[in-house]
Simulated scan of single mutants.
Amino acid sequence: MKIKKAVIVVLLVFTAFAGFAQGGKKLDKIIKRDYQIIEGTISKMSDKTVEYSLPGETIQISLDVSQIARIEFASGRSQTFDVSQNNTPTASNQSITAVEVKANTIAVLPIPYVNSQNLESSDEMSRLAQNDMYNRLLDKSANIAPLTVQDLRITNSLLSKAGITSQNIDQTPIEDLEKILGVDNIVAAKISFTVSESSTATTYSSGTKTDDKNKKVKTNDVSTTTANSQLYYYYTVYFDMYRNTTKIYSQTRKPFLNLKDSWMDSVTYLLKRSPIYVKK
Rank of each mutant, 00 (worst) to 15 (best):
N220W: 00
T200H: 00
D221W: 08
S198V: 12
K213R: 11
S198N: 13
D176M: 05
S206Y: 11
E197A: 05
D221L: 01
K179N: 02
K216I: 04
G207F: 03
F193C: 09
V183C: 06
K209W: 08
T202C: 02
D212L: 11
T202Y: 05
L177V: 01
K216T: 14
T219A: 08
V217N: 04
N185G: 12
S205E: 07
S199D: 02
I191V: 15
V217C: 10
A201I: 05
V222K: 15
I191D: 11
V187E: 12
T219Q: 12
T203I: 06
I180S: 13
V217H: 10
K190C: 04
K218E: 06
F193D: 03
I180N: 11
S199H: 01
D184Y: 14
A201F: 00
K179T: 01
V195F: 05
I191F: 10
S198Q: 00
N185E: 00
N214W: 05
S192C: 06
D212Q: 11
D211P: 09
K190S: 15
N185S: 15
V217G: 13
E197C: 03
A188N: 13
S206H: 13
T210E: 11
V195D: 09
E175L: 04
K179M: 02
T202H: 01
S206A: 15
D184H: 14
S198C: 00
T202Q: 08
K218A: 15
I180P: 14
N220H: 12
V187F: 04
D212V: 07
T219H: 08
I186S: 12
T219K: 04
D221K: 15
T208S: 08
A201P: 00
T200V: 00
D176K: 10
T208R: 07
Y204P: 01
N185V: 05
N185M: 12
K218S: 07
D184N: 15
A189D: 13
N214R: 00
I180G: 14
T208C: 02
E197Y: 03
V195A: 08
S196H: 06
G207I: 08
T200Y: 00
V222I: 12
G182N: 06
I180W: 12
L181Q: 13
D221G: 15
A201K: 10
T210G: 06
Y204M: 04
K209L: 03
E197D: 15
S205L: 02
S205K: 10
T203Y: 01
V183K: 06
V187P: 14
K218R: 15
D184P: 14
I186K: 12
L181Y: 13
K213P: 11
S192H: 02
S205M: 01
K218D: 14
K215D: 09
T200K: 03
S198E: 07
T200R: 03
N220T: 14
S196L: 02
A189E: 03
A189H: 11
S205R: 10
K216L: 04
T200L: 04
V217Q: 05
V183N: 06
A188Y: 15
K215T: 11
K218Y: 03
V195K: 14
V222L: 08
N220S: 14
K209Q: 01
K179V: 05
E175I: 07
K215L: 09
E178A: 03
T202K: 10
V187C: 13
K215Y: 01
